[in-house]
């Protein structure tokens, strides 16, 4: 199953030059093929949300784009530069792409400000004063200019993730990659991070966002890609893919995400154990205490 060309008429809201062009991308870990024949493209100013069950290859796709994973086949063009080409200066290409990780990955030994300046100084060869000026502008943008002297461990998860966004923005990227930026956050901290991302999108930043926040995807995305089992099952305008999915697998997935208490009757459809356990826990949490089965521990 590959992208449905018929769906592509919808992504016409903001058009520009092509920033990312992925053609026939494959990725295997040993004998296991995790991505199969992925073909898609992102244009300047596009916000593309990638959704799909855990283990479907969303992170791997994102990590292939900035070559944190080496693709096994196919081609990835970033602004016309073939990044899988051994002659390509990948550090230079990466410096024009910001990446935001699920686990924030702030440099633990550096202050918030230094987190945002170090790559500017090392990669872009900016002077300290200039780098700090840029960093403070971006920290102000995410609402954390007053915490520039703090260390990551002194911040909440939501604050750390916003610093991570500021750190990426300080490199003046032309493309931002987000890998489940809110999945590691306490629910009450998700909003702040999404607000920053929403603002970034409205300013015209080209963004590729792996997320489980369907409301965000529906509101902000120009295009949604639904992945399952290493292929793009469905791709198109959020109102189509989320609002009126054409494929069974998309419908099943959306039912689970939008209604965690939903127990589907189809049985196994490639869903990972972790995801099922989360769902079970949610089901248990909604159930009456009397229903609790003592043969299984209810670890906190």
């Amino acid at each position: 199953m590959t992208a449905n060309p018929a769906q592509q008429h919808t992504d016409s809201s903001r058009s520009g030059s092509t920033v990312v062009e992925i053609t026939g991308l494959r990725k295997s870990f040993g004998p296991v093929e995790v991505l199969t024949n992925i073909t898609t493209s992102i244009r300047q100013g596009d916000v593309v949300c990638v959704i799909g069950p855990s283990g479907s290859g969303k992170s791997t796709l994102l990590r292939c784009v900035n070559l944190l994973e080496q693709p096994s086949g196919g081609s990835i063009l970033i602004e016309g530069i073939e990044v899988t080409d051994p002659d390509c200066d990948i550090d230079e290409v990466r410096s024009r792409m910001g990446m935001v990780f699920q686990q924030f990955n702030l440099f633990a030994h550096l202050t918030v400000l230094s987190n945002c300046t170090i790559a500017q100084q090392v990669v872009l060869k900016r002077g300290k004063a200039e780098a700090e000026k840029v960093a403070l502008v971006n920290l102000a943008k995410v609402g954390l200019a007053d915490r520039s002297g703090a260390f990551p461990a002194q911040l909440s998860g939501g604050q750390q993730q916003r610093v991570a966004i500021a750190r990426a923005l300080s490199m003046d990227p032309e493309l931002m990659l987000f890998d489940e930026p809110t999945s590691a956050l306490d629910p009450e901290l998700v909003g702040d991070v999404l607000a920053v991302m929403r603002r970034l999108a409205s300013e015209g930043m080209t963004m590729m966002v792996v997320t489980h926040e369907m409301a965000f995807a529906r509101e902000v995305a120009d295009r949604v890609i639904f992945m399952d089992g290493g292929v793009i099952v469905e791709e198109g305008h959020p109102d189509d893919v989320i609002g009126n999915p054409q494929h069974n697998r998309t419908r099943t997935f959306l039912k689970r995400v939008l209604d965690p208490t939903h127990v589907d009757s189809e049985g196994d459809s490639g869903e990972s154990d972790a995801r099922r356990r989360i769902k079970d826990a949610e089901v248990a949490a909604h159930a009456q205490p009397a229903v609790h089965d003592d043969t299984e521990g209810h670890g906190s």
């Binding site: 900035n66 944190l68 550090d91 230079e92 290409v93 990466r94 410096s95 024009r96 792409m97 910001g98 990446m99 990780f101 686990q103 990955n105 702030l106 440099f107 633990a108 170090i118 790559a119 090392v122 990669v123 991570a164 750190r167 990426a168 490199m171």
Partner: peptide
Amino acid sequence: PKGQVEAARSLGM
């Protein structure tokens, strides 16, 4: 943590 290296590399370092 491996994420530290990945973050630095993703910034182009």
